[in-house]
Amino acid sequence: MSTLPELHALFGGTFDPIHYGHLLPVSALAEETGLSRVTLLPNNVPPHRPQPQATPAQRVAMVRLAIADRPLFQLDTRELDRDAPSWTVETLAQLRAERGDQQPLGFIIGQDSLLTLPRWHRWQALLSLCHLLVLTRPGYATTLPDAAQRRWLEAHRATDVDQLRAAPAGRIWLAATPEVDLSATQIRERLRHGQNCNQLLPPAVAAYIAREGLYRDA
């Protein structure tokens, strides 16, 4: 029996709304890597995208409903308490301080985010705080565009899941998760046109959106 510590992970996003494109790939990632806990971190002021249409309270309510019967997930609302942009590296530094120097900690991103990582605030510091767990995304390149960035990726790439538990940070895992071609933008557009989204969202989330009248006049 392995004596390596558990691997925890963090997954940030606007979750406007949370949908199966979030939940299913992350659940598959947990199976693939042995993740024991995934903390969802809703953004308040995302620095790289338009502001959410639902309020923070509505987005939190939808996340709570989505994960109520999914024990893998938990919710952390700290970024919603900030009025300033939610810089990932600052949140990770906070969580690293809370969870200790030795806790293996992953940060989940999509392949699209990996390709733009050099534009992130203090991106070079990320691997000192966590592993990067990269979900596949349909339609995005599987290699970085710059030769130096490709060398950086290969230098840190994990080839065995035990490497993610043997160190608290510093590795990059390129996951073989299912490609779910679904976005919150698509869902909001469908809802704006009165189209059914029941197969794209957890039932409790779909019911909440209907009850609150969300995304109708976006």
Rank of each mutant, 00 (worst) to 15 (best):
L129Y: 02
R99K: 14
T177D: 09
L135F: 03
W152M: 13
L133T: 02
R188T: 05
L117R: 03
W152H: 11
F107E: 00
P178K: 02
R157M: 10
N198A: 14
G170R: 05
I109E: 00
D101M: 12
W173H: 07
R192Y: 12
P104Y: 03
R157G: 05
R165L: 07
A125I: 09
L117G: 03
A141Y: 02
A141T: 06
A147N: 11
Q163P: 07
Q149C: 11
P145Q: 01
C197Q: 14
H121N: 05
G170L: 00
L164K: 09
L164M: 05
T159P: 13
L153S: 09
W120F: 01
W123F: 07
P118L: 02
L132Q: 05
L133H: 00
I109M: 01
A147E: 14
V161H: 14
H193Y: 12
N196S: 12
E179D: 12
S128R: 13
T177L: 06
L117S: 04
L114V: 00
P145M: 05
A176C: 12
Q149T: 10
A158Q: 09
I187K: 11
E154D: 13
T159V: 14
L164N: 02
L126F: 01
T143A: 14
I172Y: 06
D181G: 07
S183Q: 03
A158L: 04
H121Q: 05
I108L: 03
Q195S: 13
N198K: 15
A97N: 12
R171H: 15
Q186N: 14
H156F: 10
L201K: 09
E179F: 09
L105G: 01
S183R: 08
T136P: 15
P178M: 08
A166M: 04
N196H: 15
A155N: 14
R150A: 07
G139A: 06
A175F: 07
Q163I: 08
V180A: 09
L105K: 00
E154W: 11
Q111G: 01
C197D: 13
D160I: 08
P145G: 06
T136D: 15
